[in-house]
Computed example of a mutant assay.
Amino acid sequence: MAVFAQLTDLHLRPPGVLTLGRIDADRHAAAAIDRLLLRHGDIDAVIVTGDIADIGEEDAYTRAEMLLSRFSVPVLVMPGNHDRTAALRAAFIAWPGVVDEPVAGKLCHAREIGGVMAISLDTSVDGLDTRSHHGTLGPAQLAWLDETLAGCGPALIAMHHPPFRTGTGMDGIGLSDADAFAAVLARHRNVARIICGHVHRVIIGDVAGVTSMAVPGVAHQVALSLGEDRAQLVMEPPAYAIHIVEEGNGVSHVGYVDDYGAPVSFAEMAANAAPPQ
């Protein structure tokens, strides 16, 4: 069995700078890491599924590296549409898989953890300067994924852009080669779960029979609005996910970073409840 924690969409700016002029992304990221360290000491690895920085600044990656270095387990990072791959790679060069480059120009890697192959894919197009926020895997990375899946046991795939349509305004900046990705998956039966970010909500889809799950962001969320042309920001609670892969099957949970008080047993609540009138 392997237990993975997932953080996504930190959208960090340099220390002291608010993201979008209003979001204390640094505080949210630190709080999310605090919560994972406090409540989930049994995780085998942490996966950060992109948009680590908001506009790709070197100082933001330096801060992210500092925050994430608090974990004693492997931390796997990959870029999103708000990242600059070169700056991310430079800051995390000593971290698992980052120095590898099995596909030229893509920060993808694979690492076996607890008997599960954790595969990190790079969907980014480095389009900050051109305001291009869609995602693309590309033929070379898809060929590498095909080869990797053919040579491993149970696998978990992590990526930034969801490989399925969500029915929201975020589909306008979705994964351009999702059909080609699905075709690769259809040739294999060893993927337990696909995990991603980008859409800043819990959204679950199916790709070639594999459950694919997007999770909320750490910095902020996108309002639930179906069929809209434009996504809107909403300050719903920051969150993280826990994914368990056991005997080739995946189970996923979402936890919230904000403090809602200590857990109380149902028996205690029932004992203190007012009797029926």
Score class of each variant (00 low, 15 high):
residue 104 A to N: 05
residue 71 F to C: 11
residue 60 A to R: 01
residue 131 R to N: 14
residue 183 A to N: 11
residue 116 V to P: 07
residue 154 P to H: 05
residue 59 D to E: 15
residue 112 E to H: 00
residue 187 R to H: 08
residue 107 L to K: 08
residue 79 P to L: 10
residue 196 C to H: 14
residue 164 F to D: 09
residue 184 V to R: 02
residue 103 V to G: 04
residue 154 P to R: 00
residue 102 P to N: 12
residue 80 G to T: 07
residue 181 F to K: 01
residue 113 I to H: 03
residue 179 D to A: 15
residue 75 V to W: 02
residue 59 D to A: 15
residue 174 G to M: 04
residue 71 F to P: 14
residue 129 D to N: 09
residue 189 R to E: 12
residue 145 L to Y: 00
residue 103 V to E: 03
residue 189 R to T: 13
residue 61 Y to G: 08
residue 132 S to M: 05
residue 83 D to R: 02
residue 69 S to M: 05
residue 129 D to Q: 09
residue 82 H to S: 06
residue 160 H to G: 06
residue 89 R to F: 04
residue 60 A to V: 05
residue 62 T to K: 05
residue 82 H to Y: 11
residue 144 W to N: 05
residue 60 A to Y: 09
residue 189 R to F: 00
residue 85 T to W: 03
residue 118 A to R: 02
residue 135 G to W: 13
residue 80 G to R: 07
residue 193 R to P: 01
residue 98 V to H: 06
residue 165 R to D: 14
residue 160 H to V: 10
residue 69 S to I: 09
residue 58 E to R: 10
residue 89 R to Q: 10
residue 106 K to W: 13
residue 164 F to H: 07
residue 113 I to Q: 06
residue 68 L to E: 12
residue 105 G to T: 13
residue 56 G to C: 05
residue 145 L to E: 03
residue 113 I to A: 03
residue 115 G to W: 03
residue 110 A to P: 09
residue 74 P to C: 06
residue 60 A to K: 02
residue 185 L to S: 04
residue 169 G to E: 07
residue 167 G to F: 10
residue 134 H to V: 13
residue 196 C to M: 12
residue 75 V to G: 02
residue 61 Y to I: 12
residue 145 L to A: 03
residue 98 V to I: 15
residue 198 H to R: 09
residue 119 I to V: 13
residue 101 E to Q: 12
residue 57 E to F: 00
residue 152 C to R: 13
residue 64 A to Q: 03
residue 182 A to D: 10
